[in-house]
Design a protein around this nucleic acid. Structure first.
Length: 834
DNA sequence: TGCGATAGCGTTTTT
DNA sequence: CGCTATCGCA
């Protein structure tokens, strides 16, 4: 097999992706009417003759990839490291199944986590097999496939097939109503929290009857279970589902009707799952049900994932699913993909060394056999504070853009800033605005989550699905029609008493005299409007209807009359919404799309730096990556350590690994000495992850100090406080610890360092109460202690210098600094000056 | 009903 | 500190 790609533009693409030969004329038409899936006679004949034509799409795959593509019988686990061509394997495998006539497109179940991944996969398969594959009806996210199953068999779980899918916002509102209906204080028992609990339960595959007693008691004076039951009951009445149900209901259906399950077994000859490390328990159960086969029949399940990139444990993903694969699927073949086509040796070296500090992993080491004369080590920088960090990153970006260092200009599109928490983004944005540097923020508030979009959608939903009470309540008085709380409550009660939708209740009630004349008239008008719109549903194009609804309801007028600054933008968004409906066949199709696919495309034309969280960076790659904020408490994040201990630490480390492995050529890590958190300046110490990076692959860039400096007695004991980090190779505590024994809790200077950090960071006395993880003292947030200072005291602060205390509030001091002006700081950061 | 004051809170995010 | 959500008042 030709595995050389010396002639390829370096680092630009994965191997076989580059020199794409003219598409094979091959891509045989398969499965025409009456065609037999197994019946590629010509192909078989050819194979029989012993001169199998090796299909084009297999060219350029390395041996492991080839094995992963060609091992079609029996369970396969592909452990695909970052940048090892995972998607390529998955898509080629599907192409191979189709091309060898082993199955029709409709007999392949391929599951992804995001719609984006599903979309990409479809495109790539189409490309591979020459665009001939119409179908792949069962390629999609767990949820979208769940919907599909559920629409077919809704009646088995007491739904109608036109059920609505509620999003988080709807769910919270519904839960709130239930909590209030129980006569509970919704401040003491926040709906949001309970909605979160329901979601967690459903991720674990637990219905109201299955949740642990402890969980059930923990909420609402022991009414947790009751509330959960009530919630499910209410969903059923509303003919609605939440996201969790899209997994739970299919599971219930399969369990309840084995015959039906058997049909699906016969249908799905091949099952593929992407990002297997991210599956939660419910998804796992779902998969197990579908993957079962009678003894003797092969389980053609192929799961692809990377345990080192499991970063969603906090939302229910069970890494254990991937770690356990061989037990779950006896006889499974495990294929590791470790040859990396993305990053330079230095970047891989740094990332590999870091991730080796984790215990619970299957163990892979990425390598590249390409050598780059320009291979740059990972650059480690320090800045005095986050402002300086943003300034310096901005400068570096401008230099790259100008081509200052390497001669050729770099595109902003090839650069990204990956942060741990979104509050970090702001400083970069501010800086880039002043510089006039284009940037784009990935993630953040989404198009379909905006108020005006949600309102408009509620109108559409109610027209298409008159039983959608949540939509009804949302817009019945938007724009204002004089249908306030009293009216809505009356309608609500009336509807609940008769078990009918609120819209129907409204139609009833205008016939009675229960409402005040004014409300009655207003309600009458709205209902007339809805009747009108419903009639048009059949014979008017959905985009036209949508426009009419927004016009006639007075919704657009409402925003036109609004003189707040963002009103014009909202009107634009509404237009955009209508425009985006054009690509759908019907209102219903559109609504379904929106409930499942909440993302909107970004403007790809603009050359701009990307700013996003590490989480949303998974799966992406950039030439140059900036990783700011590597400080204890932020990264690894304190809360992660507090809440999930060592598992949390390991997940944070995987996040760091994900960050590093996004970079193709250049990776810049930053840490600062001072960061403002919740409005208070806090001293920070370098992240322990920095100490876990190998000297051989990291350069410590010159530390520039704007002012101040470390000055008074080192307050971190990290080697990064000293002029010469990496004094001797592999002598760092982290590395030694990893080498010594992965389980042994050696109390090296980690403990003292973190303990020290605790003091300086001002989290209070960690002291004996601090939690210990593997010999590392983890800072524990504790209540503030009264300050030892008094107003008027003269104090010294590392960042701001000398000043006088003007106010004290617990351990928070307001100080008028001689140079820096008035600031609020924690008292742990200042020293009395005599 | 609508706005201004204020209490509370402050990782990560998909579907 | 800055955002949001809710409350109380006009």
């Amino acid at each position: 097999m030709s595995n050389s790609f010396d002639d390829m533009p370096f680092f630009d693409e994965e191997p076989g992706e580059a020199p794409r030969k003219p598409q094979a004329p091959a891509a045989p038409a398969r499965g025409g009417p009456g065609g037999q899936p197994g019946g590629g006679l010509a192909a078989r004949a050819m194979a029989a003759r012993g001169a199998p034509q090796r299909p084009d799409y297999l060219d350029g795959l390395n041996p492991e990839q080839t094995e992963a593509v060609e091992t079609l019988e029996g369970p396969v686990l592909v452990l695909a490291g970052a940048g090892t061509g995972k998607t390529r394997v998955l898509t080629t495998r599907i192409a191979h199944i189709l091309n060898t006539n082993r199955a029709f497109p409709s007999q392949i179940l391929a599951v992804t986590f995001t719609n984006k991944a599903a979309r990409e996969m479809k495109e790539r398969i189409a490309h591979l097999v020459g665009g001939a594959v119409e179908g792949m009806p069962w390629l999609g996210t767990f949820h979208s496939i769940g919907v599909k199953l559920l629409r077919r068999h809704a009646e088995l779980v007491n739904l109608r097939s036109d059920f609505t899918i509620l999003d988080t916002d709807d769910v919270v509102r519904l839960v709130k109503q239930l909590i209030q209906a129980e006569g509970l204080d919704d401040k003491r028992w926040p709906a949001k929290q309970f909605a979160g609990m329901i979601d967690t339960w459903k991720n674990k595959g637990l219905g109201p009857a299955d949740i642990p007693e402890g969980d059930a008691r923990a909420f609402a004076n022991g009414k947790g279970r009751e509330l959960y039951f009530a919630y499910q009951q209410r969903l059923s009445t509303l003919n609605a589902c939440d996201f969790g149900d899209l997994l739970m209901h299919p599971i219930a259906i399969f369990r309840k009707t084995p015959d039906l399950l058997k049909e699906y077994h016969q249908r799905f000859r091949y099952i593929l799952v992407d990002e297997y490390q991210d599956t939660n328990t419910a998804q796992y159960m779902w998969l197990r049900l579908l993957a079962q086969r009678p003894k003797g029949e092969p389980q053609n399940v192929c799961c692809v994932g990377d345990d080192d990139q499991s970063i969603y444990g906090w939302r229910g993903a069970e890494v254990d699913n991937i770690l356990r694969f061989e037990k779950d699927f006896p006889g499974a073949k495990v294929i590791k993909l470790e040859r990396n086509y993305r990053s330079t040796a230095h970047i891989l070296g740094a990332a590999g060394h870091l991730i080796a500090h984790n215990e619970g992993r299957l163990g892979k080491t990425l390598f590249t056999d390409r050598s780059d004369p320009d291979d740059i080590k990972v650059q480690l920088h320090n800045a005095w504070d986050s402002e300086e960090e943003a300034r310096a990153v901005g400068e570096e970006i401008e230099q790259l853009q100008r081509g200052a260092s390497s001669g050729k200009p770099h595109k902003l599109n090839d650069m990204a800033i990956l942060v741990r928490a979104s509050f970090q983004m702001r400083e970069f944005e501010d800086r880039f605005v002043t510089l006039g540097l284009n940037y784009r923020v990935i993630g953040g508030p989404r198009f379909y989550e905006r108020l005006e979009i949600r309102d408009a959608m509620a109108y559409f939903r109610l027209v298409a699905q008159p039983a959608d009470d949540l939509a009804f309540e949302r817009i019945i008085n938007t724009p204002k029609r004089g249908l306030g709380d009293t009216t809505v409550r009356a309608l609500h009660d009336y509807a609940r008493a008769r078990d009918i939708p609120m819209l129907a209740a409204a139609a009833d009630m205008i016939e009675t005299d229960e409402l005040k004349p004014k409300a009655r008239k207003a309600l009458f008008d709205v209902i007339q409007s809805f009747r009108r719109w419903q009639e048009r549903l059949e014979n008017t194009s959905h985009t036209e209807l949508a426009e009419q609804i927004l016009e006639e309801s007075g919704y657009t007028d409402m925003w036109k009359a609004d003189k707040t600054a963002d009103a014009p933008a909202r009107l634009d968004n509404l237009k955009e919404l209508i425009r985006s409906m054009e690509s759908f066949e019907s209102m219903r199709g559109f609504l379904e799309h929106v409930s499942l696919v909440m993302d909107a495309e970004q403007n790809a034309d603009l050359d701009a730096v990307s700013i996003m969280t590490l989480h949303s960076a998974k799966g992406l790659e950039f030439d140059t990556v900036f990783l700011p904020g590597w400080e204890e408490g932020l990264f690894p994040h304190q809360r992660s350590l507090d809440e999930t201990g060592r598992a949390g630490l390991e997940e944070e480390r995987r996040l760091a690994y994900v960050g590093l492995t996004r970079a193709k050529r250049r990776c810049h890590i930053w840490f600062v000495n001072n960061r403002r958190i919740h409005g208070l300046w806090q001293s920070t110490i370098p992240s322990r992850f920095l100490d876990e990076l190998p000297e051989t692959h990291v350069d410590v860039a010159a530390v520039e100090q704007s002012y101040g400096g470390y000055g008074r007695g080192g307050y971190g004991q990290s080697r990064f406080d000293k002029a010469e980090p990496f004094a001797n190779s592999y002598s760092t505590p982290g590395w030694k610890r990893a080498q010594a024994n992965r389980t042994d809790a050696t109390r090296d200077n980690w403990g003292s360092r973190s303990g020290h950090a605790v003091e300086r960071i001002g989290y209070g006395e960690a002291g004996p109460k601090g939690r210990t993880i593997e010999g590392e003292l983890v800072a524990k947030s504790t209540a503030a202690q009264p300050s030892k200072f008094t107003i008027g005291d003269r104090v010294f602060h590392l960042k701001f210098g000398n000043g006088n205390i003007t106010a004290i509030e617990g351990n928070k001091l307001t100080i008028a600094f001689d140079r820096a002006g008035e600031k609020r700081v924690l008292d742990g950061f200042v020293e009395a000056v005599s």
